Simulated scan of single mutants.
Amino acid sequence: MIRVGMGFDVHKLVEGRDLWLGGIKIEHEKGLLGHSDADVLLHAVSDALLGAANMRDIGYHFPDNSSATLDMDSKIILRETVRLIATKGYRVGNIDATVCAERPKINPYVQAMKTCMAEVMGIDEDRISIKATTTEKLGFTGREEGISAYAVCLIEK
């Protein structure tokens, strides 16, 4: 059996926070605001995996009002998500994700993100596609107020 899931996440860019995307720290004058480390890419992927397995969303499993998840490394969220879907007999087939940001440029970091995510999930890097785009200066992303990420995944039993 195969199933498909879709995930989306967005976080506001603020000063005084580190910028984490795809499990790696990226040098930038602003970081993403959130209860955890606010890694929009890992959150979107985790939501896609949970959705495909019909297991709700990351807010259900990792609530943003819990002291246990405060400042949590999103790699922990992703690793636990893979473990959760495995309890229903699923494994990751592939992931296709897009990060939407005006700055910083994401493409120089894509390979490091793929390597990190593959290690966290215990899968081959070839199963992960990460793309980057801008909104051509339109909307909150275009004004550099935040970053969003979209992810689609296939899981297999």
Rank of each mutant, 00 (worst) to 15 (best):
D39C: 03
S67H: 10
K12Y: 11
D71I: 04
G31Y: 01
Y60V: 04
T133R: 05
G16F: 12
G31L: 06
Y90A: 08
D18R: 02
N65G: 12
G22K: 08
L78D: 15
G139C: 13
W20S: 05
L78R: 06
S46H: 04
F62I: 00
L42A: 07
G16P: 06
G59S: 14
V45N: 06
V45L: 15
M72C: 11
I77T: 04
D71Y: 04
A52G: 03
I77N: 09
V120L: 12
T81W: 07
L41P: 00
R17P: 01
L42W: 01
V45I: 11
T81L: 08
K88M: 13
I58C: 14
D124P: 01
D96W: 00
R103W: 05
R3Y: 10
D126I: 07
E27H: 06
C116P: 02
V99I: 06
K12Q: 07
I2G: 14
V14T: 10
N107G: 09
T87V: 05
V14C: 02
G59T: 04
G31P: 03
I95T: 02
Y60L: 04
V82P: 02
M6T: 06
N94A: 04
E136G: 11
I2T: 11
L50Q: 06
I130C: 04
K105G: 04
L32K: 07
M1C: 06
V82D: 07
A52V: 01
M72R: 02
N107T: 13
T134G: 09
K30L: 13
M6E: 15
N65L: 15
L19C: 12
I24N: 03
I58R: 12
D96K: 06
S36K: 13
E119Y: 09
I58G: 05
G23P: 03
L33M: 13
M55E: 10
A132P: 00
S66R: 10
K75L: 13
S74Q: 12
E125D: 05
S36C: 12
G22A: 07
R127S: 07
V45R: 04
T87Q: 14
Y109P: 01
L42Y: 01
F62V: 02
T98Q: 13
R91Y: 08
I24A: 07
I85S: 02
L50H: 08
D124K: 05
I128C: 02
V45T: 01
A52P: 05
A132G: 11
E125S: 08
K114M: 09
G51A: 11
S67K: 11
A97R: 01
I123P: 00
L138W: 09
D71T: 00
E119H: 04
E136A: 12
I106H: 11
K137L: 09
N54D: 14
D126E: 10
T135I: 09
V99E: 14
N94L: 03
V92M: 13
E136Q: 14
D71E: 08
L33S: 08
L21S: 11
A132T: 00
V14A: 03
T141S: 12
G5V: 04
T69K: 15
G142S: 10
S129Q: 02
P63W: 10
D64W: 04
R83Y: 08
D9A: 09
K30P: 00
Y90L: 13
E29L: 15
D64Q: 10
G23L: 09
R143M: 15
H11T: 06
N65C: 15
